[in-house]
């Protein structure tokens, strides 16, 4: 029983504040960890990285190894990395890097360091912030309320199928596809079968969390030529389990619900802005006045919501 949320602003603004409100209203659905995917101002070149290291006593050594891999791929830092530490063993980082010669190849190499330091999002616009604890705790620690953006996702996690660890928090990045993130409420029952098929194609998974799998599965379908809408429709019959997930790219947000209609999704779409969440009381935090809600309660539902002109690119 996790809580998920999506938010599209009618114009870029205080996205972080809204996502924190959406997740605060759903904290009872899971306070093991909370996370946010925020799409900020897209850059023409270079990437923003967000991630974690797992032993803060080794920050310098980890960063040296990380920097060496980066430079091996023709990239470097565009500014000094920001490192955030607290009482936990793990630390969090934000980095701005120039374009590696080949993003996929760099991600593959930097993934060899994941027992020590892990990249959890990579994008022109996307930043994934996630950590242990409830929404206010994570928001305060990482300054989420002050973050601006056009659209994003939120997640409150009640761990069921995998460990309660900082890096098992949601959202998940669809590694190695830049600017793609997912939040998911449910369980995938053919997880290992699907994972094995994707691994045979060369994809890597850093956790045993089924949400990470869906993100890569949908992105792979899009890489093969499907639109997001087509990929979402295909997911209903291709992925087994009970689920509602939302997946975001720089163009907008898509959602899919399983064949059994077990996981809720409520949407308010008004005045060019949109809020979607597991529970109605969450979307009412953002749209305070009584207004029409759309209950996506039925089975086998999919849809996409674009930013700007409000239609997703094919």
């Amino acid at each position: 029983m996790c809580g998920i949320a999506g938010r599209i602003l009618s114009a870029p603004g205080r996205l972080g504040r809204d996502l924190v409100d959406l997740m605060d209203a759903q904290e009872h659905r899971g306070a093991d960890s909370t996370g946010f995917a925020i799409y900020g101002v897209p850059r023409d070149s270079g990437y923003v990285l967000r991630g974690m290291g797992f032993d803060k006593s080794q920050i310098d050594a980890n960063l040296t190894d990380f920097t060496n891999v980066l430079r091996d791929h023709g990239s470097d830092f565009l500014s000094d990395p920001s490192i955030l530490t607290d009482n936990n063993d793990h630390y969090c980082f934000r980095m701005e890097i120039s374009d590696p010669k080949n993003l996929d190849a760099w991600v593959k190499d930097v993934d060899t360091l994941t027992d020590r330091i892990e990249v959890q999002s990579c994008g022109r616009a996307l930043e994934i912030i996630k950590d242990m604890g409830g929404s206010a705790e994570v928001a305060d620690k990482h300054g989420v309320r002050e973050m601006i953006g056009s659209h994003g996702l939120g997640h409150a996690r009640l761990a069921t199928e995998s460990s309660v660890l900082p890096n098992a928090s949601h959202p998940f990045w669809a590694r190695p596809f830049s600017d793609t993130a997912i939040v998911h409420n449910g369980q995938i029952t053919d997880y290992f079968t699907q994972r094995e098929q994707l691994q045979r194609q060369g994809y890597r998974f850093l956790t045993e969390n089924d949400s990470e799998l869906i993100a890569v599965w949908v992105s792979d379908q899009m890489k093969q030529g499907l639109s997001m809408q087509q990929a979402l429709t295909k997911s209903i019959t291709s992925i087994d389990g009970v689920f509602t997930f939302m997946i975001a790219t720089t163009d907008g947000i898509g959602f899919a619900k399983d064949r059994f209609a077990m996981k809720p999704l409520v949407v308010i779409d008004q005045d060019g802005g949109l809020a979607a969440a597991t529970e109605e009381q969450a979307v009412r935090r953002v749209f305070a006045d009584e207004c029409d809600v759309i209950n996506h309660d039925g089975p086998s539902l999919t849809g996409t919501w674009g930013i700007g002109n409000r239609s997703m690119a094919a």
Binding site: E279, E280, Q281, R284, R285, V293
Partner: peptide
């Protein structure tokens, strides 16, 4: 009469 319900559970 219950007001300002905010769709709470």
């Amino acid at each position: 009469r219950v007001v300002n319900t905010l769709s709470r559970h």
